[in-house]
Design a protein around this nucleic acid. Sequence first.
DNA 1: TTTTATTTGTAAAGCTTTTTAACATTATAT
DNA 2: ATATAATGTTAAAAAGCTTTACAAATAAAA
Lengths: 230, 230
Amino acid sequence: MNNNSKILIIDDERQIRKLIVITLESNNFYVLEAATAKEGLQMAAMHPPDLIILDLGLPDEDGQSVLVKLRDWYISPIIILSVRDAETDIIQALDNGANDYLVKPFRTGELLARIRNALRNKFESNNQSIITFQNITIDLVARIVKKDNAVLKLTSTEYSLITLLARNENKVLTHQFILREIWGPGYVEQSQYLRVFIAQIRKKIEENPNQPKIIITESGIGYRLVGEDI
Amino acid sequence: MNNNSKILIIDDERQIRKLIVITLESNNFYVLEAATAKEGLQMAAMHPPDLIILDLGLPDEDGQSVLVKLRDWYISPIIILSVRDAETDIIQALDNGANDYLVKPFRTGELLARIRNALRNKFESNNQSIITFQNITIDLVARIVKKDNAVLKLTSTEYSLITLLARNENKVLTHQFILREIWGPGYVEQSQYLRVFIAQIRKKIEENPNQPKIIITESGIGYRLVGEDI
DNA sequence: TTTTATTTGTAAAGCTTTTTAACATTATAT
DNA sequence: ATATAATGTTAAAAAGCTTTACAAATAAAA
């Protein structure tokens, strides 16, 4: 997994870059650094990395704009960095195609976990007809969901919702994104729907629905389906 | 439309071939002939035609098998010919990717209409976000269906169903195919569902639901959404 | 052509799912 | 620690789907 994957950091704060470089290099990643948006875009184009860590607060260009430019052609994971009081930016970045986010200051352990997660997904094919996570199996062709080999009775909305989350295993999906995908663009404000249906699904798949281990709430942002119980 | 499109006929009956050749050539089509499956497959591979007319009753190989082999690589329309008492074959052929069918004996006018239909579809892009037919418009992104510019209130099943039919404008979709696509593979026997929902949609889109002009019944086979009122 | 059988269409009741609403709990910010 | 915002829970109301019974239309047979 961490065998020589190439990672590009785009961040203007030298201290943060240094912290990340030390953490990653001691875990056998090969690290590239860029201090500005311009430099980062050039470097990404010249030496396409396996993963990009992008700070949203760059001096020379808006982070969202950098993200959109990257996503034009770059398909590997992008993890964004942001300060705590800029949650709107995080949400927008996730909608713009970021895979995950880290709020500064962050623990280096968390950084590594997020990177491993993102890279793991990268290597898993995305066109399977059977998705498995924790003790759950989804057969996309037969449209059957099983928990420990027992078939679950799901309504069609419940099925669509868990399938959407499962196809984006370990990735935070914003409320807006989920509502747009499942109910359509006219429903992006109806987050109450989501609460009701997430609750229903949790009742069916979680061992302990009021302490969920599969569908995790990312408060203020959305939900994340966790592939492996950690 | 009929400006020099190349059409290949695969049929062992010399009389039928002659009839088709005369009809098509007098309408400015360029016609290729094959009398056996082997010959037809070779000819299709050497001079890929714009449309293939395939008789299911060939002497040297089962028609379905020829169809499957063609569909491996051939994406342009295939119209099948069949005798009246082989409706099972027609249904299977449509499921195997045939675009349309003609029952022998057929009127030459009908042959021409079916060919023009199939070729028209070929030239229309299939990745639009707005589909229009007769006085109906479907906006696939907004998930809105309009009749004469008035928004129709459709349930989600109704919406999925009309969208499926519309994406296959002028093509017969078998009951099984529709049920599999909309309700899932466990529901291919539930053709009553289809009758109920087709009736509901007709009530909303047809001027005169008991004399439908948009969603046409193909008795014993399935339904067809007609793009242009003729 | 008339009769029979099969397929398709219609309508409504019963059941399930979705939506709405009111309130409780938990998480986040001050 | 408290206030505010976000999320979770529950259940009633509304909407939609499924089933049933029967009618009409179409295709096949006599």
